[in-house]
Design a protein around this nucleic acid. Structure first.
Length: 819
DNA sequence: TCGAGAATTGTTTTT
DNA sequence: CAATTCTCGA
């Protein structure tokens, strides 16, 4: 065995038979252990590689593991099955789902598709969206699936009108999915479990196949995933799970911490190995982490330690407001990285909304950054449009994809016509696509029928081209250029069009790279089953699958010399020499709802999130918080997060504001200030929009709601009134996008601007035209330049065209010619 | 059928 | 406040 493993790690590696729980603290080298364990199985135990299954949660983790397993150098290492839960299930289902009455080329619906489907169901069942919100229903359905609850089971337990209604929606939703030959994300797991239940011989096959199973990040598994693993391990019981109960931060999406806490009960005779030596962080950082997490109850007993004693103290900084915080943090980073190397720095925050200020500051201070998360690349409109084209080309059964693009770009096929098509399709048991190919036979369409037919012919032509092996990249180009998609994009506005085209170009890159890998035979998804013929997956289908299962975190690239901006959740599993945790404020982190929840575990989950954040840091950790911050429309005053308070003073180097800075009087009673905030919320002071909350909500969420968050609302300080009215004074003409939007936003709170913004650094003219000049544009013809503004990327030019109206466009993109 | 303006609504966190 | 969804007039 390779050296360099500590005693405990070796123990975990060598314990190959029977159930094993590895409690792996943050930074304790669990991936190494897993990889070594696989190597040990292959080389020492002579286990056949196809008898080994390693499951992860993210593609990134899977890729990393894949690379390291391949790097073992053992013969056949590439036949070890390494994949995410979802990918594993897709692979199994592609082979056997016909037994559940689905077609094997089913499509996978993402969140947007789900929402559309729920909307359709609402329509079909005549449900008013005021009565029931799509989002809430989706959440309910998803949590049902997390625990393997079928529509029938849910209906049986449903109490009250609302739940009974949801039960109906759930049932209909599943019916529609089946009709569309589609599965949503959760279904991938659920259907696999269902398959195993319904077909013992299939389960049997996989039990034999996977004699050694390893699950990473086990604390994140939900009940369905647990069940899946339990089924697979049902014969050989060689199930090794790795996790850390202190890093369980996905309860909201169904992760069941009990899975790890009672592993030994579920798998009798399980061995337990604790990895407590941390190889990542300094002693101070680790002490802080331990001190914080100590406040949680019901954890597995363990305490991380390191040989790296001491280290710099944790820096704690307070700022007058969120803008100043962003400015201070980014400025500090810029100063630290004077050598121009920005890698190794991460700025973490609780909510995605906080990223905006940080991003802005990076732009103005010229600090290169990479933002992880936010809007998923594959959820952007243009990407979804193109992907919908591909889906339609690949699989005529996806009604949603078809509906999405049949009138994009505009083809004069409106909702009304498609409504008729839908009725016809339903009446005749056809998919929407099939109905479209018969548009001629359908009454009442008028000449729209011809347009629909023309559309189907176009798709059919693409189908031919794909079938004949034309490269995906070319197909994509053709889709963008020849369907008129590009033209329509450009009409919408040049600024938009530019980024959208960039995104589409990125998709194309992805497709080209994928095709290359596919042709080389290592596109991964069609790994051969042992002893059976490999499952042939056509290129386009394989690509769509890849796209469907990709998440944004997978796009984080550590090799770049850029600072990383991301949520605490996204940071899990990563490490950085320097970490900044921002927004360490009571009410934001931990969030209001967790503070007010009577369920103590909500707060504990927040605390675990904090623990995750702290333990990302290797050498230096900075925590920052702001005295006040805009939350939605109002300004909120907060004090430091309780998590900060839980760190002993001797570990901290504090830089706090003087007591009477800014908001002044509020500071006078330290506790009163904040509890006043709760009081106001509890007292029932809705900010006058109570009607919005008519839908039932879980108690404990109740009356506090947003009212509680918005500072002293109703508490007698009048802060919200003053701040928002002050703000209103800045009202700017809508849509004109004048400079005021960039420069005027300095904090109004307390009347002290936090810092001057410097957005309007207009560089020396590098354009050969300016306001007042006559220019011409390829498409819009001639016009007069009204304004030239320096945007974040390029000059934004406003042109009043003689015939096409006034447009704002990016100079580099518009290619205006001076006349 | 379609666009622009109005109304509504939302903040956790995501595979 | 911003982003999305809705509604109404042409």
């Amino acid at each position: 065995m390779r050296q360099g493993l500590n005693e405990k790690q070796l123990e975990a590696v060598r314990c190959t038979e029977g159930p094993l729980l590895i409690l792996a603290g943050a930074g304790s080298g669990k991936t190494r252990v897993l990889v070594h364990r696989i190597a040990h199985l292959l080389t020492e135990k002579n286990v056949e590689p196809w008898h080994i299954l390693a499951i992860t949660f993210t593609n990134k983790a899977a890729d990393e593991m894949r690379a390291r397993v391949d790097g073992i150098g053992a013969e056949g290492a590439q036949d070890v099955w390494v994949a995410t839960f979802h990918a594993t299930c897709v692979r199994i289902l592609r082979r056997h789902i016909d037994r559940l009455g689905f077609d094997r080329n089913f499509t996978i619906y993402d969140t947007d598709d789900q929402k559309t489907l729920v909307k359709n169901v609402f329509k079909a069942l005549n449900i008013d969206t005021q009565t029931l919100k799509e989002k809430n229903v989706m959440r309910v359905i998803s949590s049902c699936k997390d625990v393997l609850q079928t529509p029938e089971e849910y209906a049986a337990e449903a109490v009250g009108y609302r739940e009974e209604l949801i039960a109906k929606v759930y049932a209909e939703y599943q019916r529609q999915l089946k009709k569309n030959n589609a599965l949503d994300f959760d279904d991938l797991i659920v259907k696999t479990v269902e398959l195993f239940g319904a077909c013992p011989e299939v389960l049997d096959y996989y039990r034999e196949r996977f004699r050694y199973i390893m699950v990473d990040e086990y604390q994140d598994t939900n009940t369905a995933q647990f069940r899946l693993v339990e089924l697979l391990a049902g014969r050989y019981h060689n199930i090794c799970v790795v996790g850390d109960d202190d890093q369980s931060i996905y309860k909201f999406r169904g992760a069941n911490i009990e899975n790890i806490l009672s592993f030994e009960k579920c798998f009798p005779g399980a061995a337990v190995v604790k990895l407590e030596q941390n190889y990542r962080s300094t002693g101070n950082i680790l002490d802080a982490a331990n001190e914080v997490i100590r406040h949680n109850r019901g954890r597995k007993d363990k305490r991380l330690w390191t040989s790296r004693e001491g280290g710099p103290k944790i820096v704690l900084r307070q700022y007058p407001d969120a803008g100043a915080e962003a400015d201070g943090v980014i400025r500090a980073i810029r100063d630290e990285c004077a050598d121009g190397d920005y890698s190794g720095c991460a700025v973490l925050y609780r909510t995605n909304a906080q990223s905006r200020l940080l991003e802005e500051r990076c732009v103005t201070l010229g600090v290169p950054y990479q933002l992880v998360g936010g809007v998923n690349f594959y959820q952007r409109k243009e990407i979804k449009d193109i992907v919908a084209y591909l889906k339609t080309i690949a699989n005529g059964r996806d009604d949603l994809a078809l509906l999405r693009i049949i009138n994009v770009p505009k083809r004069g096929i409106g909702a009304a016509s498609m409504e008729k098509m839908g009725i016809y399709a339903r009446a005749n048991g056809l998919s929407l696509w099939e109905a479209c190919t018969r548009a001629k036979e359908i009454p009442g369409l008028g000449k729209t029928g011809e347009k629909i037919l023309a559309f189907t012919e176009m798709i059919a032509a693409y189908r031919m081209r794909v079938g004949s092996g034309e490269p995906l990249g070319d197909i994509l180009d053709s889709l963008v250029n020849e369907t008129g998609y590009l033209q329509e994009l450009q009409q919408e506005g040049e600024i938009e069009a530019q980024t959208r085209l960039e995104n589409i170009a990125e998709l194309k890159n992805k497709a080209v790279a994928f095709e290359e890998a596919y042709r080389a035979g290592d596109a991964g998804r069609n790994m051969p089953e042992a002893g059976e013929e490999p499952l042939e997956v056509p290129l386009l289908d394989a690509f769509l699958e890849e796209v469907a299962l990709i998440a944004d975190i997978d796009r984080y690239d550590e090799s770049q010399s850029k600072i990383t901006l991301m949520t605490l959740h996204a940071a899990k599993g990563l490490e950085f020499p320097r970490v900044y945790m921002t927004g360490m404020e009571e009410g934001l982190f931990p969030g209001m709802s967790s503070i007010n929840a009577e369920d103590r575990t909500e707060l504990e989950e927040e605390r675990r999130l904090c623990y995750v954040g702290i333990t990302r840091a290797m050498d230096r950790l900075t925590m920052t918080f702001a005295k006040c911050r805009m939350v939605k429309v109002e300004t909120v005053w907060s004090k430091a997060s309780r998590f900060v308070e839980e760190i002993p003073d001797e570990l901290l180097e504090k830089h706090l504001l003087e007591r009477d800075y800014g908001a002044g009087a509020f500071d006078d009673d330290e506790d009163g200030g904040f509890s006043g905030c709760f009081g106001a919320g509890k007292g029932g002071g809705y900010p006058g929009r109570a009607g919005r909350y008519s839908e039932e909500r879980p108690s404990g969420y109740g009356s506090v709601g947003y009212g509680g968050v918005t500072g002293y609302a109703g508490g007698g300080y009048g802060s919200r009134g003053s701040s928002s009215s002050y703000r209103r004074g800045f009202g700017r003409p809508k849509g004109s996008g004048g400079g005021a939007s960039a420069a005027g936003g300095a904090s109004a709170a307390g009347g002290k601007p936090a810092f001057g913004r410097e957005f309007k650094v207009t560089r020396a003219e590098s354009l050969d035209y300016g306001p007042g000049d006559r220019v011409s544009h390829m498409k819009f013809g001639e016009g007069t330049v009204r304004e030239v503004k320096d945007g974040p990327r390029d000059y934004e030019v406003t042109v009043e065209f003689d015939t096409a109206g006034t447009k704002v466009m990016m100079a580099g993109f518009a290619k205006l010619k001076k006349l």
